[in-house]
Structures are given as C-alpha cells and as structure tokens.
Amino acid sequence: MITVTNLTKRYGGRYALAGLDLAVGTGVTGLLGPNGAGKTTLLRCLATTLAPDGGSVDAFGLDPADPVQRTALRRRLGYLPQDPGFYPHFTAFDLVDYVAILKELTDREQRHAEVRRVLAEVDLTGQAGTKVRKLSGGMRQRLALAQALLGEPDLLILDEPTVGLDPAQRMLFRTLISRMGESRAVVLSTHQTEDVAALCERVIVMREGRAVFDGTPGQLAEVAAGQVWLSDTAPPASRVFWRTADGRYRTLGERPPAAHGTAPGVEDGYLTLLGEAA
C-alpha cells in the first residue's frame, strides 16, 4: 500500500531521515527507536503534514508531492499526532464534529452518526457533552484517537497513541487497533515495547534516520538470544541489570557468575540491537 523510497529530511546539519526505504501493507506495523531516531518525522511525511527534502512517498498509488493527489490521499488516512491540539472550550462531540467537517463529511445527519460511532469506539459516549478542558489526560488521548478514526481510513498513522492511558484503556486500544489492522494499514510509533509485542505483526527499529531492523517481534527478541540471565546475587555494577519482583537479578549482556539463561523479550532485543543508543 505505502512505499517510501530514499526518503530524506534534514534539520540544519542533522538528518532526521537519511535515505530511508520502506514498504508497509495491511496489518499493524510498529516503529521503535530512541528519541531523535526519525520516527515522528517519518509519520509526518506519511501523513502529508511535512514535505521531505528528497526521495518519495507512494500511498495507494498517490504521490503526496502533487497537490491534487495529496488531497485525495488525505481523504484516505487518519492521523494522531504526538501532540494533538485541542480547543479546550469545545465539547468532545463538537471537537470531533469539527474535524469531521474538515474531512469533508458534509451531510449533517451522517456526520453526526459517524462522530457518535468513533466516540463509542474509544469509550467516550458518556463524555460527548463534556468540555475538552474537563477531560482527563487519558480521555483526551482517546478523543484524539477518535478523530483519527473518522471515515474508517485505509491508512491509520498513530504517534505515541498510548501515552496517558491506564491498563484498561490500553487494553481497549489494543482491541480496537488489532481489529483495524485486519483490513487496513496501521503504522504506530511508540516507546512501549509491550505494545509492540502485543499488537504488531511487524516492527521496524529506527536509528539516526535509518531502519536498522525490520521483522517480527519474535525475531527482534531473538537478537538478544543467549544474552539474558537470571541470578540470585547482584552482578558487577558495570553490567546492565535490574532487580526483579521475585528478588532475583536480570542481566543483559555477558553472563554473570552463577547465572542461568532465560528467554529474551522484545525489550531485550531492542536494547541489544541499539546498545548505548537505546
């Protein structure tokens, strides 16, 4: 569905995207990477809110560099930015309705039905008449997700979508996004490796504007195979380790004395792959 070819974006003397090549199809694709890796810049280019300095994006056969095709592409995508802007004196319903008007849903009755649908999807029906300024942080994040779902977009772009969500809300989000990934392309950026492990069929790890890993969460975990250890005593302080809930010590890297191996997770693979950059 979406192909990125030799994409570059520069801020001053630093490349946020450094010749990135990527193809994304139906399903949920997760982007991982340290701060400054280029994840948000990539999502903004896909969402047509930022023009790259070089390279190209092709989405559904449309070229966002062309104004007419860019408008056609925007009709087919939903976007949740990292820092969504809100009008604090709007109600939740009015805010989503306003975005629906911008997305050219002109029939009032059909538009309001669609607004009610997406509010229900994110469990905000009861807060439809509440002003945005009175909503909690988690509710505002769900409201931002609701506007991205308007019109059942073919491409859903989500930047840090689970920020501020409690465990129950995170479970609701996973249910919703996994269902959407069955029939459309979902690309999400996150620092939550547990979301990637739970949701994504595919994970891309970015570093300095390039993709340094592209595979399944299981394949990312295997990057740390043979490098995750459990011991009853604390290893030397120079190692990467932490004390677990059962009082043992989990170490990533070389084997400490009297330690035994344990199965790696997505976070272990990510930390091993990026080393100090993580």
Rank of each mutant, 00 (worst) to 15 (best):
P256H: 06
I2L: 15
L124K: 02
L42I: 05
V118L: 04
R76F: 02
Y249W: 15
T193W: 06
R44G: 01
R10K: 14
T162E: 05
Q82W: 08
F86H: 09
L43T: 06
P34Y: 06
L119W: 07
M180H: 15
R170Q: 11
G25P: 11
K39L: 11
L145D: 00
E104I: 00
F173P: 00
T244R: 15
D107F: 00
F213M: 09
T130H: 10
L32M: 10
H112M: 07
A92W: 02
A18E: 10
G126N: 02
A120D: 15
G126E: 10
T175Q: 15
P167H: 11
G25C: 12
T8H: 14
A224S: 09
L50E: 10
E182D: 11
V203D: 09
G138T: 09
A197G: 05
N35D: 15
A120Q: 11
R207F: 14
T216V: 04
R170F: 12
L273R: 08
T162Q: 03
D53R: 02
P34I: 08
P34N: 06
R117K: 13
A148K: 07
E208Y: 03
A18G: 00
P235Q: 11
Y87S: 07
E182G: 12
G261Q: 14
A144E: 05
L274M: 13
T91Q: 08
T162C: 12
G138R: 04
L32T: 11
I101F: 01
E208A: 15
V57E: 04
T8S: 12
L22A: 14
H191F: 05
G25V: 10
H191P: 03
H260M: 04
G19H: 12
R248M: 08
Q192V: 13
F173M: 04
S231Q: 09
A59Q: 02
A168P: 00
T91G: 06
T3P: 00
Q219E: 15
Q141F: 01
G12T: 02
L252D: 12
R70G: 02
E194F: 00
D94V: 06
F86K: 08
A128H: 09
A259T: 07
R70F: 01
G33M: 11
L105F: 14
P84Y: 05
G218C: 03
R75E: 14
E267M: 10
T175K: 13
